[in-house]
Design a binder for these strands. Sequence first.
DNA 1: GCTTTGCTTCAAGTGCACTTGAGGGCTTTA
DNA 2: TAAAGCCCTCAAGTGCACTTGAAGCAAAGC
Lengths: 157, 157
Amino acid sequence: MCGMTVIDGNPVQAPPVDACVAAGADYPRPDGQDSYTIGEVAEFTGLSAPTLRWYEQIGLMPQVERSHNGQRRFGNRDLDWLNFVRRLRLTGMPVADMVRFAELVRQGEVTYDERREILERTRTEVLTRVLELQDTLAVLESKINFYAAAHRAPEGA
Amino acid sequence: MCGMTVIDGNPVQAPPVDACVAAGADYPRPDGQDSYTIGEVAEFTGLSAPTLRWYEQIGLMPQVERSHNGQRRFGNRDLDWLNFVRRLRLTGMPVADMVRFAELVRQGEVTYDERREILERTRTEVLTRVLELQDTLAVLESKINFYAAAHRAPEGA
DNA sequence: GCTTTGCTTCAAGTGCACTTGAGGGCTTTA
DNA sequence: TAAAGCCCTCAAGTGCACTTGAAGCAAAGC
């Protein structure tokens, strides 16, 4: 059933990003480290620093830790979450919906059902999109072949 | 070679939408008709009438026929083109790039090579996106399964 | 010590893809 | 003949997802 760290009754403080954050490629990150500046995270994720701040501001990030002098310190958990956000963005989900999901995550286990429903709807949409894109791939290849053939035999026989 | 109407040295007037417009589902359209109002096309395509006008204005449509009193009359050829545009939009291609492609189409056979290159780049991008979405599907399913399992067995073990 | 580098907040600006509004014309139905 | 419905153009407005600018703090290098 998904072999990831199921620490949802969280020990210290970091809010549960989400249970089950395995599967799929992660962002590159240095080994044995769990604290990154916004600049580092920007580099890892390809998101700009302002975007990361904005994500936090609108509630798309589970509030980020701060260093003694007020600078953000992102943890691996945050990188996992950003990786998931990247995937959702890829599916075309509006940021507002992702924020909604993030709120549900913050509310804890009681929202499991609603979270599941959201992800199931998303899954259906993604599946549809994948099928359409595969159709589109066929269209593209047929056109590419046409152009290539026309190139070899200029002016239709 | 793609078995569609390859009339690129065009007989009467309608500009060559594109050679090779087969493959993939078309918009629904009444049989044996080749002239539709903007309202009908809006209904077929799901695009709004203003959007269709805007597409024409920015050069994304090969200029549309007009009736005696100046109203647009879209043909099946236009529907085919809009269907292709819909696919390109689905791939995330910016409208500006589609306009560029439309320009190439208007310029005729001499642009076959450039068109092929564009479509090849697009194909690569779409392929990448499909793979990422399939990855995302796996992530979604794993999370869905987690939530479903947690639902059946509330509070760990 | 002073400048550079990298971070901070808050507000305003940008780019894209449309959408909406204002003002008007033609054709069809009451 | 008058109102309804569908079309027209042109210009301005909207929503989303960021991006940029202004003003300032704080540790690091010369």
